[in-house]
Design a protein around this nucleic acid. Sequence first.
DNA 1: GGTTGACCTTGACGCGACGTCAACGTGTCT
DNA 2: AGACACGTTGACGTCGCGTCAAGGTCAACC
Lengths: 260, 260
Amino acid sequence: MRIGELAALVGVSTRTVRHYHHIGLLPEPARQANGYREYRLADAVALARVRQLARLGLSLDELRDVLADDDGRDLREMLQELDADLAREQEAIAARRARLAALLARADEGSGALMSAGMADVLRGLSLDGSRFAELDRQMLTLASAMGGPEGESAVVELMRPLTEPDTLAGGLDLYRRLDDLAGADPDDPRVAGLAADLAGHITDAMASAMIENSRDPAAGGSPVTDGDRWLETLAGEMTSAQAAVLRQLMERLRERTSC
Amino acid sequence: MRIGELAALVGVSTRTVRHYHHIGLLPEPARQANGYREYRLADAVALARVRQLARLGLSLDELRDVLADDDGRDLREMLQELDADLAREQEAIAARRARLAALLARADEGSGALMSAGMADVLRGLSLDGSRFAELDRQMLTLASAMGGPEGESAVVELMRPLTEPDTLAGGLDLYRRLDDLAGADPDDPRVAGLAADLAGHITDAMASAMIENSRDPAAGGSPVTDGDRWLETLAGEMTSAQAAVLRQLMERLRERTSC
DNA sequence: GGTTGACCTTGACGCGACGTCAACGTGTCT
DNA sequence: AGACACGTTGACGTCGCGTCAAGGTCAACC
């Protein structure tokens, strides 16, 4: 039997057979006078056994180990381990499909590509043409919802809901304007303290807790939802010094409030 | 923000970020004076969106296409296609686990590594120390069962059951000896015809049908169980000319029998 | 005898999503 | 001044083969 016949008999490509020779998974058979490989029935049996196990998902390295010491004992162990791996993979795929389904459902009702209608509403409410701060806030919220997955996003939407009510919203947009006005100001500008106080008044206790929880110093380890914290520094880096001062004073006020 | 902070914030490695730059999935940000990449919040948002989709299993090429034209329409198509792929993969894994479970169950009761107790019985019954023919038969059966999967193996066991009964078995082993005796004989040896007749007498109708079905010429396409046919030639190649003559006459008799 | 075409040989690159190492520059702390 | 953590580019390794490339072998047909 030549290599093409062997491959056809077992149902693989000749490349596969040569690959198995190359990695030592199948022994090289004797050669004919012209250099062609000459296979016997026993080679076909060996190849079929290899394929039988490979189809199940064992790696070729594992196969070589298993077939080397034809023990049958550690083969069972390997197969059980493989089954556990496959089970884990099944769960992972199921989880992916669940997230996918949630995403698709939200894409059907929502306006944007990846967010729910609720999230789209929040972002629309916070938009204020030409405001750098509104844009920053929107980016932070988008980031939080993209990183937390579906449950993270709905948590964000839930937290932000109080801010989207019409009367509250108008005051919030005014705060954006006042922050924007501080763009070129000094960190000691008299408007800073008052603005921080007004901002704190707009932030609910739940929002304050979430913000503080996710901005703890690295030693404590972040929450599972937003993995890397230090978003405060990131955010501050996008502001001018006066605006960053407002942010610092705001966080101080929030920490005082939650510690009481 | 430098690359390490960005990576920590989103929860990936710096290598991943640079990889995304390299393949054009994320735009290269501005550089600081020292050559370091300088990231803004918007970059973190883009990266988080990429990861959100990548976690679902989209390839980076697909991601680039999707994010290029931020349409939202073909994104849904891609996600639905992805869901279908994942569903297929789930089925494939389930099938693998089913075969694995069958194999494990058989390994628990069987003697050998990969076969059921029934198959082990058949092979033990057909063993005859020093007989080349018994060995060939065992190899053929092993090959058939390894290639057909669990259902193929049980089919083989079912087919061979009549041969494993004690009185039939003794006659079969005698046939092996007579075949072995023909090793150095001439193809025209007078014993050939009688041996073919006796062999035909030992083969049940079901076995004859299976043998003929799986030895049709390549034009007709083999059965789904044993993919490559022409096993007859393979088998004949392992014999001497007189033994091959017996095989040819045997197949002729079987064909006559099933055509009536 | 020449040609075609199917088969065989070895050798090498490609894929996908990064991990990992090399060799080097930069910035901060002691 | 040295240690150390970070950044830079570049290149190789992973896994199971598919797919050329550049030939040699053999049977069949003109």
